[in-house]
Amino acid sequence: MQKEKKTHWFRKIENMHPYRTLMYLGMFGSGLLFFFLTTAFVLSQPESGVFERSTFPKSFIMSSLLIVVSSYTSGKILPSFRLHELDKTKNFLLFTFLLGLLFSGFQFLGWKELSTMGIDFRGIPSGSFLYVLSGIHLFHLGGALIYALVLVIQVEKSGKDPVKSLILLTNPYEHMKLDLFAVYWKFMDAVWLILFVLFLWMF
Protein backbone atom coordinates (compact mmCIF):
# COMPACT_ATOMS: atom_id res chain seq x y z
CA MET A 1 0.00 0.00 0.00
CA GLN A 2 2.81 2.39 0.92
CA LYS A 3 4.65 1.51 -2.28
CA GLU A 4 1.51 2.32 -4.30
CA LYS A 5 1.23 5.72 -2.59
CA LYS A 6 4.89 6.49 -3.26
CA THR A 7 4.48 5.44 -6.89
CA HIS A 8 1.37 7.62 -7.17
CA TRP A 9 3.18 10.71 -5.87
CA PHE A 10 6.20 10.00 -8.03
CA ARG A 11 4.03 9.75 -11.15
CA LYS A 12 2.17 12.90 -10.15
CA ILE A 13 5.45 14.82 -9.88
CA GLU A 14 6.77 13.21 -13.06
CA ASN A 15 3.67 14.26 -15.02
CA MET A 16 3.80 17.83 -13.74
CA HIS A 17 4.31 20.54 -16.34
CA PRO A 18 7.95 21.77 -16.43
CA TYR A 19 6.86 25.36 -15.69
CA ARG A 20 4.94 24.23 -12.62
CA THR A 21 7.91 22.15 -11.48
CA LEU A 22 10.26 25.10 -11.94
CA MET A 23 7.98 27.41 -9.99
CA TYR A 24 7.63 24.98 -7.09
CA LEU A 25 11.39 24.48 -7.01
CA GLY A 26 11.84 28.26 -7.06
CA MET A 27 9.38 28.66 -4.21
CA PHE A 28 11.19 25.95 -2.26
CA GLY A 29 14.53 27.69 -2.83
CA SER A 30 13.08 31.07 -1.84
CA GLY A 31 11.53 29.50 1.24
CA LEU A 32 14.91 28.13 2.31
CA LEU A 33 16.53 31.53 1.72
CA PHE A 34 13.96 33.30 3.89
CA PHE A 35 14.21 30.57 6.52
CA PHE A 36 17.97 30.92 6.89
CA LEU A 37 17.82 34.72 6.86
CA THR A 38 15.05 34.87 9.45
CA THR A 39 16.96 32.40 11.61
CA ALA A 40 20.05 34.61 11.37
CA PHE A 41 17.85 37.62 12.14
CA VAL A 42 16.51 36.05 15.33
CA LEU A 43 19.92 34.78 16.43
CA SER A 44 21.48 38.21 15.88
CA GLN A 45 19.54 39.30 18.97
CA PRO A 46 18.30 36.46 21.22
CA GLU A 47 15.66 38.57 22.95
CA SER A 48 12.53 40.24 21.66
CA GLY A 49 12.05 43.98 21.96
CA VAL A 50 15.34 44.90 20.29
CA PHE A 51 13.78 48.10 18.97
CA GLU A 52 11.47 48.72 21.91
CA ARG A 53 12.48 52.38 22.04
CA SER A 54 11.30 52.81 18.47
CA THR A 55 7.79 52.87 17.04
CA PHE A 56 6.89 50.12 14.61
CA PRO A 57 6.70 51.63 11.08
CA LYS A 58 3.09 52.47 10.27
CA SER A 59 3.83 51.94 6.59
CA PHE A 60 4.58 48.26 7.25
CA ILE A 61 1.19 47.92 8.92
CA MET A 62 -0.53 49.52 5.93
CA SER A 63 1.40 47.38 3.46
CA SER A 64 0.36 44.26 5.39
CA LEU A 65 -3.31 45.22 5.09
CA LEU A 66 -2.83 45.74 1.35
CA ILE A 67 -1.17 42.36 0.89
CA VAL A 68 -4.04 40.65 2.72
CA VAL A 69 -6.55 42.30 0.37
CA SER A 70 -4.41 41.31 -2.63
CA SER A 71 -4.53 37.71 -1.43
CA TYR A 72 -8.31 37.89 -1.75
CA THR A 73 -8.24 39.45 -5.24
CA SER A 74 -5.63 36.96 -6.48
CA GLY A 75 -7.84 34.14 -5.23
CA LYS A 76 -10.69 35.38 -7.43
CA ILE A 77 -8.70 35.32 -10.68
CA LEU A 78 -8.95 31.62 -11.47
CA PRO A 79 -12.62 31.15 -10.48
CA SER A 80 -13.57 34.04 -12.79
CA PHE A 81 -11.54 32.53 -15.62
CA ARG A 82 -13.19 29.13 -15.13
CA LEU A 83 -16.59 30.83 -15.43
CA HIS A 84 -15.41 32.40 -18.73
CA GLU A 85 -15.74 35.89 -17.25
CA LEU A 86 -12.76 37.58 -18.86
CA ASP A 87 -13.71 41.07 -17.69
CA LYS A 88 -13.72 39.96 -14.07
CA THR A 89 -10.51 37.99 -14.61
CA LYS A 90 -8.83 41.10 -15.99
CA ASN A 91 -10.18 43.29 -13.18
CA PHE A 92 -8.98 40.95 -10.43
CA LEU A 93 -5.59 40.72 -12.11
CA LEU A 94 -5.45 44.50 -12.34
CA PHE A 95 -6.57 44.98 -8.73
CA THR A 96 -3.89 42.52 -7.58
CA PHE A 97 -1.28 44.35 -9.63
CA LEU A 98 -2.26 47.77 -8.26
CA LEU A 99 -2.36 46.50 -4.68
CA GLY A 100 1.11 45.05 -5.25
CA LEU A 101 2.34 48.45 -6.45
CA LEU A 102 0.84 50.16 -3.40
CA PHE A 103 2.42 47.53 -1.18
CA SER A 104 5.81 48.26 -2.76
CA GLY A 105 5.35 51.99 -2.24
CA PHE A 106 4.57 51.53 1.44
CA GLN A 107 7.62 49.29 1.80
CA PHE A 108 9.81 52.18 0.66
CA LEU A 109 8.01 54.47 3.09
CA GLY A 110 8.62 51.90 5.83
CA TRP A 111 12.34 51.95 5.10
CA LYS A 112 12.24 55.75 5.30
CA GLU A 113 10.55 55.51 8.72
CA LEU A 114 13.23 53.08 9.91
CA SER A 115 15.96 55.41 8.70
CA THR A 116 14.33 58.37 10.49
CA MET A 117 14.37 56.33 13.72
CA GLY A 118 18.09 55.71 13.27
CA ILE A 119 17.72 52.06 12.27
CA ASP A 120 19.94 51.41 9.27
CA PHE A 121 22.70 49.18 7.91
CA ARG A 122 25.32 50.88 10.08
CA GLY A 123 23.53 50.14 13.34
CA ILE A 124 22.91 46.91 15.18
CA PRO A 125 22.90 43.74 13.04
CA SER A 126 19.17 43.26 13.54
CA GLY A 127 18.52 46.63 11.90
CA SER A 128 20.20 45.62 8.65
CA PHE A 129 18.16 42.40 8.57
CA LEU A 130 14.95 44.46 8.48
CA TYR A 131 16.08 45.98 5.20
CA VAL A 132 17.55 42.77 3.76
CA LEU A 133 14.51 40.58 4.47
CA SER A 134 11.92 43.10 3.30
CA GLY A 135 14.11 44.02 0.31
CA ILE A 136 14.50 40.42 -0.89
CA HIS A 137 10.77 39.91 -0.51
CA LEU A 138 10.10 43.05 -2.55
CA PHE A 139 12.49 41.83 -5.23
CA HIS A 140 10.61 38.53 -5.50
CA LEU A 141 7.29 40.38 -5.60
CA GLY A 142 8.61 42.60 -8.39
CA GLY A 143 8.82 39.61 -10.72
CA ALA A 144 5.21 38.72 -9.94
CA LEU A 145 4.13 42.31 -10.64
CA ILE A 146 5.74 42.25 -14.09
CA TYR A 147 4.06 38.93 -14.83
CA ALA A 148 0.71 40.26 -13.60
CA LEU A 149 0.96 43.21 -16.00
CA VAL A 150 1.73 40.85 -18.88
CA LEU A 151 -1.34 38.76 -18.01
CA VAL A 152 -3.56 41.87 -17.78
CA ILE A 153 -2.48 43.00 -21.26
CA GLN A 154 -2.99 39.50 -22.69
CA VAL A 155 -6.49 39.12 -21.23
CA GLU A 156 -7.41 42.65 -22.34
CA LYS A 157 -6.35 41.98 -25.94
CA SER A 158 -8.02 38.58 -26.07
CA GLY A 159 -11.26 39.96 -24.67
CA LYS A 160 -11.70 42.20 -27.68
CA ASP A 161 -11.63 39.31 -30.16
CA PRO A 162 -14.18 36.44 -29.89
CA VAL A 163 -11.78 33.96 -31.53
CA LYS A 164 -8.86 34.91 -29.26
CA SER A 165 -11.19 34.79 -26.26
CA LEU A 166 -12.26 31.26 -27.14
CA ILE A 167 -8.65 30.15 -27.61
CA LEU A 168 -7.66 31.75 -24.29
CA LEU A 169 -10.52 30.17 -22.35
CA THR A 170 -10.06 26.67 -23.78
CA ASN A 171 -6.28 26.50 -23.70
CA PRO A 172 -5.08 24.51 -20.63
CA TYR A 173 -1.74 26.34 -20.80
CA GLU A 174 -3.45 29.71 -20.24
CA HIS A 175 -5.34 28.24 -17.30
CA MET A 176 -2.06 27.00 -15.84
CA LYS A 177 -0.41 30.42 -16.18
CA LEU A 178 -3.13 32.06 -14.12
CA ASP A 179 -3.04 29.24 -11.60
CA LEU A 180 0.74 29.54 -11.16
CA PHE A 181 0.47 33.29 -10.73
CA ALA A 182 -2.20 32.95 -8.05
CA VAL A 183 -0.21 30.28 -6.18
CA TYR A 184 3.01 32.30 -6.29
CA TRP A 185 1.25 35.47 -5.19
CA LYS A 186 -0.25 33.72 -2.17
CA PHE A 187 3.18 32.32 -1.37
CA MET A 188 4.65 35.83 -1.34
CA ASP A 189 1.72 37.04 0.78
CA ALA A 190 2.41 34.31 3.33
CA VAL A 191 6.14 35.11 3.40
CA TRP A 192 5.50 38.78 4.10
CA LEU A 193 2.96 38.06 6.86
CA ILE A 194 5.49 35.79 8.57
CA LEU A 195 8.12 38.54 8.29
CA PHE A 196 5.60 41.08 9.58
CA VAL A 197 4.89 39.01 12.70
CA LEU A 198 8.63 38.55 13.21
CA PHE A 199 9.24 42.29 12.89
CA LEU A 200 6.48 42.99 15.39
CA TRP A 201 8.13 40.59 17.82
CA MET A 202 11.38 42.53 17.55
CA PHE A 203 9.74 45.86 18.41
Rank of each mutant, 00 (worst) to 15 (best):
F121E: 13
S165M: 14
K6M: 12
F36M: 11
K186T: 14
D120L: 10
L78W: 12
M188W: 05
I67T: 02
I124R: 08
F196L: 13
G26R: 06
G26E: 04
I67V: 05
L65K: 03
Y72R: 08
L168I: 05
F10D: 13
M1A: 10
L93M: 09
L22D: 02
L66W: 03
F56S: 07
F28D: 04
H140S: 06
L98T: 10
G49A: 06
V150R: 13
G135R: 12
H17Y: 12
H84T: 09
G29M: 09
L66A: 02
P46S: 09
L94E: 07
F34V: 02
T55W: 12
G159S: 02
M23I: 10
S59H: 00
T170G: 01
Q107Y: 03
L130E: 01
R53L: 11
N15T: 10
V132N: 01
V68E: 00
G49E: 08
L99H: 04
F95G: 02
F103D: 08
F196G: 12
L83E: 15
S59T: 13
A182R: 10
S80N: 04
E47K: 14
Y24E: 07
S104T: 09
F81G: 00
S115K: 06
F92T: 08
S54D: 12
F60H: 00
P18E: 09
E47T: 10
R53E: 14
S74W: 15
P125L: 02
K6Q: 07
W9S: 14
G31Y: 08
K88G: 13
L25K: 09
E156G: 08
W185I: 02
D87T: 15
S64K: 03
K3H: 15
L200S: 04
L149H: 05
F35A: 12
K90M: 11
K186G: 15
Y19Q: 12
H175T: 09
F35Y: 07
W201G: 04
E14W: 15
R53D: 07
L32Q: 05
E14T: 13
S104N: 00
L166E: 13
K88E: 14
I194L: 13
S71P: 14
L130S: 00
S48K: 05
G110I: 13
N171D: 13
E47P: 00
Y72C: 11
T38C: 12
E174C: 00
T7F: 10
F56Q: 03
M1Y: 10
G75I: 13
E14G: 10
V197N: 04
L101K: 08
S115M: 10
Q45L: 03
H137W: 05
M117S: 14
E14Y: 15
L65F: 11
L98V: 13
K12S: 13
N171S: 08
F97D: 07
K6G: 06
F129A: 00
E52K: 15
T38S: 05
M62K: 06
I124S: 01
G142L: 05
F129N: 00
F34Q: 07
F181R: 02
V42L: 01
R122T: 15
T7H: 12
D120K: 06
F139E: 04
V132K: 00
M62F: 09
E14A: 09
S71T: 15
L198R: 03
K157N: 13
L78T: 04
G142I: 14
F103G: 02
K186P: 11
Y131K: 02
R20F: 12
Y184K: 01
T39D: 05
S115T: 14
A182T: 15
G143Y: 10
K160Y: 03
Y173H: 10
L22H: 08
V69C: 06
